[in-house]
Write a protein that binds this DNA or RNA. Structure first.
Lengths: 129, 129
DNA sequence: CCCCAGGTTTCCCTGTACGTCACCTTGGTA
DNA sequence: TACCAAGGTGACGTACAGGGAAACCTGGGG
């Protein structure tokens, strides 16, 4: 336990590139210790990275993730943080629900187009595979 | 019939900005006549614009749309064009089906998080609106 | 002594679809 | 004739999430 990681190790461990990890630092999302110039990551940093990646996977922007993680540090009771999280999550849910509808609409329209296209091809004597 | 449009008219008619229409020209998607320097759009150009916007709405990139419209001009039998369309449409359908799943997964995960968040807040004596 | 692996910084590049700005022309109107 | 609105061009900015490459440093091994 208390394993320490280099950028490369941490990155490989999490399935991202070192460039990405450094980029997140640039954006203020993580602040590893240094040994001289070399970045040193603890298991806490690793956990933080995992949170970041989870946020990304769920569609949050790096800015939103930062905003959220920043609160985590400041807000010891975590009430404010949880409230922000709840709000953001609800927003995201609403957005995804819209997106779901949009995708379904597009799918319908595309399937219509596909059918018409194949009909047109058949009427020209071309049979589709 | 045979109404002619200025950029501004056409743009307003289609719910985009003149900038957008000119941009599409830059990208080789439309090539209106000119009276001197002034762009003049016919109802054919308008129809073409509508096709472009429809493509966009369905998630195709301008490059794909161009590729497709270019074939329309060259390919008089339209067989090749229809085949390209069918392929592209199928690709888009596949992509959207994946996306649908991804969105549904995210939604599930987000609803879990929302529930957990609200529980946590309640356990801290905070009641949500 | 030299070289390599792996670390560092800094800066520019990518794609997408326009928005914005500055500046120039032109046609019509008062 | 003075002027404005609407047209034009060209260049640069925007957002997002990094990728890529140059140029440097550093420690360890042979």
């Amino acid at each position: 336990m208390d394993k320490l990681y280099s950028v490369t190790e941490l990155a490989r461990d999490l399935g991202v590139t070192p460039r990405t990890v450094r980029f997140y630092e640039d954006q203020g999302l993580i602040l590893p210790q240094r040994a001289g110039n070399t970045r040193i990551y603890t298991h806490r940093d690793r956990a933080r990275m995992i949170l970041i990646l989870r946020g990304k996977r769920l569609g949050f922007s790096l800015k939103e993730i930062k905003e959220f993680l920043d609160l985590y540090v400041v807000d010891t009771t975590q009430v404010e943080q949880l409230q922000l999280l709840a709000t953001k999550v609800r927003g995201r849910i609403a957005l995804l629900e819209d997106q779901l509808l949009a995708v379904q609409t597009s799918l319908t329209e595309l399937r219509d187009i596909e059918r018409m296209t194949l009909d047109a091809l058949r009427s020209k004597g071309v049979n589709s595979a």
